[in-house]
């Protein structure tokens, strides 16, 4: 059952990722990306990482992608002029598959399978408790640095936006 779910979700993630890079309409591409996020969230649930799964949907599908859509709608980005030639699409597919294969081969070379705990001995790395205690003990410094980085980005965005308003006024 779990294996079946894994294959369904994995197939869905790969398929929607392919649709993302091949669709010509920006909105359709954004929707495909949302579908990819959902499939990844499903994979996290299979790993018992419920918190990570919900945060994946909440942050990426729910917030980041809404902003993407917002920009697409505001700028009214239209379908790209002219059709992509069949050979271009084929080339895209081949290159994506090629890159994917390189990753798979590299992963099997470093024997990821042996390093990961299998089946029943999975430690609960994605539950609320595990993530919380890890975030505030072992990874406290990176966590704080990341928050400072985000704060700097917010301040920078505000300054850029403000300057344009004051420029336009006189």
């Amino acid at each position: 059952m779990q294996l079946l779910m894994f294959y369904i979700l994995g197939f869905g993630a790969v398929l929607s990722a392919l649709l993302l890079v091949t669709s010509k309409k920006p909105v359709n591409a954004a929707m495909s990306l949302i579908a990819t996020m959902f499939c990844l969230a499903g994979l996290y649930v299979l790993l018992d990482a419920h918190l990570v799964a919900v945060l994946q949907i909440l942050v990426y599908a729910g917030a980041v992608m809404v902003l993407f859509l917002f920009v697409i709608m505001l700028l009214n980005i239209q379908e790209k002029e002219g059709r992509l030639a069949g050979s271009t699409i084929a080339l895209q597919f081949v290159s994506i598959l090629g890159v994917g294969m390189v990753f798979v081969i590299a992963a099997s070379l470093v024997k990821v399978r042996g390093a990961l705990p299998t089946g029943g001995e999975l430690f609960p790395f994605g539950t609320t408790k595990a993530v919380g205690s890890m975030l505030f003990t072992e990874y406290l410094l990176p966590f704080e640095i990341a928050s400072m980085l985000l704060l700097a980005a917010i301040v920078g965005a505000v300054i850029l936006a403000k300057r344009r308003i004051s420029d336009a006024k006189p």
């Binding site: 909105v27 419920h50 945060l55 729910g62 859509l69 709608m73």
Partner: peptide, 25 residues
């Protein structure tokens, strides 16, 4: 009874935005 029930509600309510935004677009 999910142990992340409240976050589940938030995730769904953040997805509800799509219906409005995409329907309008």
């Amino acid at each position: 009874d999910l142990n992340i029930g409240l976050l589940f509600v938030f995730a769904l309510s953040s997805l509800g935005v799509y219906g409005i935004a995409l329907g309008g677009w």
